[in-house]
């Protein structure tokens, strides 16, 4: 078939189809990152969806992005800051409480090894959440999700030197938090 004839019968991809093709490969990683920030599955899905809603009309811009994965995470991060962190100083009286014995512990316990691992992970999680937000973001992106320092700098809009120095300090603090005498393991080795 001639080229012009091919073109005549070729239906151009709609904007929606192009959008789906572009973002689909990155959705799970966006979700994972959203989960790391929000620590809640429903919030993570809502956050990803919210970002997608905003990006649908920007297909041409998405197509021009060289490395779309980190770019999407950067948009996700900004939206997360807008929706969640800036509401920390909510005008609503934030005094609320709960009975500690009612709490649902999330960590699984599937035998001794899994239990020990879960306990260690929980201690790490606690240590991670005790870090300053700026440090924690860098650890989550670099050490947990595997982005490079340059990508982290791009996502968080920092310079690479700042990322590296904060990462170094964050790791030192985490190591200190998990040092012998600080971390309690339920079973002796």
């Amino acid at each position: 078939m001639n080229t012009w004839l091919t073109r005549l019968f070729h239906t151009p991809q709609s904007r929606e189809d192009r959008f789906v093709s572009l973002v689909s490969p990155h959705l799970r990683r966006m979700y994972r990152m959203a989960y790391r920030w929000t620590m809640n599955a429903h919030e993570a899905e809502d956050l990803v969806q919210d970002v997608l809603v905003r990006l649908v009309p920007r297909v041409a811009e998405l197509e021009a992005v060289e490395r779309l994965g980190p770019w999407l995470v950067r948009v996700l991060y900004r939206r997360y800051v807008d929706l969640y962190r800036r509401r920390c100083a909510s005008p609503i009286d934030a005094n609320l409480s709960l009975e500690s014995d009612d709490l649902e512990r999330r960590a699984p316990a599937r035998g001794n090894d899994d239990f020990r691992r879960a306990e260690l992970q929980r201690a790490l999680q606690r240590a991670l959440w005790a870090l300053d937000e700026e440090w924690r973001d860098i650890v989550l992106l670099h050490d947990v999700e595997g982005y490079t320092a340059i990508e982290v700098a791009d996502i968080l809009q920092l310079n690479v030197g700042t990322v590296k120095s904060r990462l170094h300090r964050a790791r030192a603090k985490l190591k200190k938090s998990l040092a012998p005498g600080t971390l309690q393991i339920s079973e002796a080795c």
């Binding site: 799970r28 979700y31 994972r32 989960y35 790391r36 599955a41 993570a44 899905e45 260690l120 992970q121 790490l124 999680q125 991670l128 650890v139 050490d143 947990v144 595997g146 790791r171 985490l174 190591k175 998990l178």
Partner: peptide, 13 residues
């Protein structure tokens, strides 16, 4: 430490 961090669980959607 990095290995521990890399293994931090995140549920699948």
């Amino acid at each position: 430490l990095q290995r521990l961090l890399r293994e931090m669980p995140a549920p699948e959607p």
